[in-house]
Design a protein around this nucleic acid. Structure first.
Lengths: 146, 146
DNA sequence: TATTGTTATACTCTATAACTATA
DNA sequence: TATAGTTATAGAGTATAACAATA
């Protein structure tokens, strides 16, 4: 076995690099944590969302969402109100400031994604899409069964 | 922009899952850290290696290699000796115990990799290989230029 | 009694830089 | 003076579980 050819290792190394590409934007230029960035991106459609939705859509834990959203509320990026239908939970959406921040960030991170994808031709992009989906599904299955 | 379609996010989520597949083996069953696992795998060819080689081949920092190798030496997995040609540095290789541990782990982690790859056909595997290489190169370039 | 989200705590990782020994 | 590797330390991130409010 050669570590350099081992798929989980290669994916981990690529993820480290490509995550850092994006972290240079949200963290270094805009002072967000990764979790805050994921919440921001998930709320960008302007709707009210519950914590549970942000968990799922951002691949985060409830504690991470709790802390990220509290900090974002303090920083004026989101507003929160109790869910009238279930007062244990919260509904959250971006403030105008949050929307403004998002709009500043999006073109930059999309340009970075585009730069990565420029290396690939049409076929490769399509295949990559399928492959990521399939691998993720299998990996999830493997983790579950232990 | 939809986060769920955003390439760096998708790679990060996949990496989390697929790394956990392997961590369940090296960490939960064999009590190694990720760094120790990478060092073990890199020394598996039986040769003496310097710290600098382990850095490169394992995508680690010198501090991480320093700590991992110290702990592995205490645990009897590797032996270290000063490099006669440059006594600032060390040469390291697996002990018979280290080799034995590696041999127990390899079939298990390779079976897990194989399970992931079963989801892909020949074409997809070949494309994935190229795509990972290209994306990593681009991501590295992007990180460097900031 | 179970669920949603919060808080507390301990633990691991990471990043930075100071340090030593050799070169 | 520069380099290889070590140590120290502080900060960030992670995991676990206990907890309050509500269902």
């Amino acid at each position: 076995m050669r570590l350099a050819d081992f798929l989980p290792y290669r994916i981990a190394v690529l993820a480290e690099q490509s995550s850092q590409c994006i972290a240079q934007v949200y963290a270094e230029r805009f002072g967000l944590t990764r979790d805050e960035w994921r919440v921001l991106a998930n709320l960008a459609d302007g709707t009210w969302k519950r914590t549970a939705q942000l968990l799922e859509e951002g691949a985060l834990e409830k504690m991470q969402v709790s802390r990220a959203t509290q900090r974002m509320e303090r920083n004026g990026l989101i507003e929160r109100k109790h869910d009238a239908e279930d007062r244990r939970g919260w509904l959250m959406r971006l403030t105008p400031e949050g929307v403004g921040l998002y709009r500043k960030m999006v073109p930059i991170v999309l340009a970075r994604e585009a730069f990565l994808l420029e290396a690939l031709d049409e076929d490769e992009r399509r295949t990559l899409d399928d492959v990521l989906r399939k691998l993720e599904q299998r990996a999830r299955q493997l983790v579950r069964q232990g």
